[in-house]
């Protein structure tokens, strides 16, 4: 059996890819809450934004989709856009004052994608399907979860334009999504 180096790993192949989103979300959401599209994060305009890179907004959207257990296919008729920053660089460096790196999030996104997609791992292991195809499946799933998240956020903004500008605006969404599940589970157990 041939020894594998890290660049050949499935995770590494996945991490070399970039995420993409429906272009309209750039103005609707991403640029509103992150430095995306403003160039240097030191620019005055960027100061005071909730997030740094645009991908941070994507991570938020992805987890909303994941915890809602909902994916939404990207609209084929609409333009798509990439962040220009492969996943392997997401949250890697503490580029902004006071920010920390968060490598574990990438691993957990990958684990979640493996868990939530119907990949035939045996076939992959046997070489019956290509790693590149599997990675594409994972990326598609990731984009779809995030796409659901973006629509969710757009709806939130429509209902209450200020809700996400509060300090706890995004946190509340996650607390809401993760807490809601518990009573449901309990109810099911009772039934």
């Amino acid at each position: 059996m041939a020894a594998r180096n890290t660049t050949d790993s499935l995770f590494a192949l996945w991490a070399k890819r970039d995420a993409y989103f429906e272009t309209h979300f750039q103005d609707e959401i991403i640029s509103k809450f992150s430095d995306y599209g403003v160039g240097s994060s030191k620019s005055n305009e960027a100061k005071g934004k909730t997030f740094g890179g645009g991908y941070e907004m994507f991570i938020i959207a992805f987890f909303i989709g994941l915890y809602s257990d909902s994916r939404r296919e990207l609209d084929k008729s609409l333009d798509k856009k990439k962040f220009g920053q492969p996943i392997e660089y997401w949250g890697n460096l503490d580029s902004r004052t006071g920010r920390k790196s968060y490598p574990e999030i990438r691993k957990h996104i990958f684990a979640a994608l493996i868990a939530k997609t119907d990949i035939d791992l045996i076939a992959l292991e046997k070489g019956e399907i290509e790693a590149g195809d599997v990675v594409s499946t994972l990326i598609d799933a990731m984009n779809e979860y995030a796409n659901y998240g973006f629509y969710y956020l757009a709806e939130k903004l429509k209902d209450n334009p200020n809700s996400l500008y509060r300090n706890s605006g995004f946190l509340d969404i996650f607390l809401d999504l993760t807490r809601k599940k518990q009573p449901k589970d309990e109810e099911l157990e009772e039934l």
Binding site: F51, I59, F63, Y102, H108, L175, T178
Partner: peptide, 19 residues
């Protein structure tokens, strides 16, 4: 809190069932 979601991994608060 929004930055803590990422920097302090708070965003992974619902990951247990996925893991």
């Amino acid at each position: 809190y929004s930055k803590k979601l990422l920097d302090d991994y708070w965003i992974m608060c619902g990951m247990s069932p996925v893991i």
